[in-house]
């Protein structure tokens, strides 16, 4: 159970970008879709393809990512499956109200008369939602593999964060593997005392309480470590003067291009939505039509 950043230096367009560029671009995409609430597939599709292309350009090896994809799909399933399809609650209320042909109905506890109607609009919404979510998530999903963990602090500093906040970032990265290892050791130590995480007895609450033997030692040791780290940092004059951050960051033309692109996307989305009312959710006619005849 070793936490490792699967980061690898690769000579790709993505990794040649300035880290700040990547954060800013990511922010633009997220804002562009959330602030003006874009749901129109004519906008989502191209943006999704853009994110996807950038993602593929990062050339992350499949073996590094297959695990991650597994969890991503679990996430998608819960959000889409549970909210969009089953509990018709998913999405802008329009989705449920839209008069829309029923594909099929799932009946859970038919006796209780609880049946869920899977309508065209729900399915269509689900698809849009997945697309929208991935568009926003992909730039972040690739970060751990393509961004040197040692650069985050510097990047934030250069984007105007304070010395202290930026260094907190670095320090957090520094300690993660340490605590992951502490946790592994603690798990072993308790197993050696006959403790079996897999088969904890008792009800749910009891089960949670029985996690104490794992949570307590690691947490308490970390509080002790903290005192030493504080001394170590004070003794090396942390926070006595404005800090030098060794690593220089420089924007290259490609960075201006990407940032420009991001900002443009954001503006276009805002203008279309608020200026022309384009961008809301709707089910293209050809669907419903094709369903009816």
């Amino acid at each position: 159970m070793l936490v490792t950043w699967k980061y690898r230096p690769r000579n790709t367009f993505i990794q040649r970008l300035d880290p700040r560029t990547r954060f800013i671009f990511m922010a633009c995409i997220i804002l562009a879709l959330t602030i003006p609430e874009i749901w129109d597939y004519r906008l989502l599709l191209p943006l999704f393809l853009l994110s996807l292309t950038l993602f593929l350009m990062a050339r992350i090896e499949w073996k590094d990512m297959k695990r991650a994809w597994f969890y991503i799909f679990i996430l998608l399933f819960f959000i889409v499956g549970l909210n969009a399809l089953l509990s018709g609650r998913g999405g802008p209320s329009s989705v449920t109200n839209l008069p829309s042909p029923v594909l099929f109905t799932i009946s859970l506890w038919a006796d209780r008369g609880w049946v869920v109607q899977i309508t065209v609009s729900k399915v269509w919404f689900a698809l849009n939602q997945i697309m929208r979510m991935l568009t926003m998530a992909l730039p972040a999903i690739m970060l751990p593999y393509t961004l040197d963990p040692n650069i985050y602090g510097t990047a934030f500093k250069r984007m105007g964060a304070s010395d202290r906040v930026s260094f907190t970032m670095d320090l957090a990265f520094r300690f993660m593997p340490t605590f992951a290892r502490d946790l592994t050791i603690t798990v072993d130590a308790q197993r050696a005392r006959g403790y079996e995480v897999e088969k904890l007895k008792g009800g749910l609450f009891e089960k949670i309480r029985k996690l104490a033997p794992l949570v307590i030692p690691v947490t308490m040791q970390s509080t002790v470590t903290g005192e030493e780290v504080i001394d170590a940092m004070d003794l090396r004059a942390f926070g006595t003067a404005p800090r030098t951050w060794l690593k220089e960051l420089h924007y290259a033309p490609r960075d201006y291009f990407m940032i420009g692109l991001g900002v443009a996307i954001f503006l276009v989305c805002c203008i279309l939505k608020w200026g022309f009312g384009i961008g809301g959710f709707f089910v293209p006619d050809f669907f419903t039509n094709f369903m009816i005849n």
Binding site: F167, T168, F173, R174, S222
Partner: peptide, 12 residues
């Protein structure tokens, strides 16, 4: 410093 350290440790 104290808050920085425990912020980071808590985060980790």
């Amino acid at each position: 410093t104290r808050q920085v350290v425990y912020g980071a440790i808590g985060a980790a």
